[in-house]
Amino acid sequence: MRFRPCIDIHNGKVKQIVGSSLRDAGDRASENYVSERGADFYARMYKEKDLSGGHIILLNPQDSPYYEMTRQQAKKALSAAPGFLQVGGGITDQNAAEFIEAGASHVIVTSFVFKNGRISYTNLKKLVKAVGKEKIVLDLSCKKKDDDYYIVTDRWQKFTQVKLSAETMDELSQYCDEFLVHAADVEGLQNGIEDSVAKILGAWGKRPVTYAGGVKNIEDIKKLKKYGKGKVDVTVGSALDLFGGHLSMEEVIKACK
Rank of each mutant, 00 (worst) to 15 (best):
V181N: 06
H182Y: 10
A183D: 02
A183Q: 03
D185L: 08
E187H: 11
E187F: 09
E187R: 09
G188A: 07
G188L: 07
L189T: 12
L189A: 10
Q190M: 14
I193F: 15
I193S: 13
I193K: 15
E194A: 14
E194I: 01
E194G: 04
E194W: 05
E194M: 08
D195I: 01
D195R: 12
D195Q: 11
S196W: 01
S196Q: 14
V197T: 05
A198G: 09
A198I: 02
A198H: 08
A198F: 08
A198N: 07
K199E: 13
K199A: 13
L201H: 14
G202C: 14
G202K: 12
G202L: 11
A203P: 09
A203V: 01
A203I: 03
W204R: 12
W204C: 07
W204H: 12
W204A: 07
W204Y: 15
W204D: 13
G205S: 14
G205D: 14
G205Y: 14
G205V: 01
G205N: 15
R207S: 08
P208N: 12
P208K: 10
V209P: 07
V209I: 15
T210H: 13
T210S: 13
Y211S: 03
A212Q: 09
A212P: 04
A212V: 00
G213Q: 04
G213K: 03
G213W: 06
G213I: 00
G213H: 05
G214S: 10
G214Y: 10
V215C: 12
K216Y: 10
K216C: 06
N217K: 10
I218M: 08
I218L: 15
I218W: 06
E219A: 12
E219N: 12
E219R: 13
E219K: 14
D220I: 00
D220L: 11
I221V: 15
I221Y: 13
I221H: 13
K222R: 15
K222L: 12
K222C: 04
K223Y: 04
L224H: 06
K225F: 03
K226S: 09
Y227A: 03
Y227N: 07
K229T: 00
K229L: 11
K229M: 11
G230H: 04
K231R: 13
K231Y: 05
K231H: 07
D233T: 00
D233N: 14
D233V: 00
D233L: 00
V234S: 09
V234A: 14
T235K: 03
T235S: 05
V236W: 08
G237S: 06
G237K: 02
A239Y: 06
A239N: 02
A239S: 08
L240E: 04
L240I: 00
L240D: 05
L240K: 09
D241Y: 05
L242F: 06
L242Q: 07
L242R: 04
F243L: 01
F243V: 00
F243R: 00
F243M: 04
G244H: 11
G244L: 06
G244N: 06
G245A: 08
G245D: 09
G245H: 09
G245E: 05
H246D: 11
H246I: 01
H246K: 14
L247N: 01
L247P: 00
S248G: 06
S248Y: 03
S248A: 06
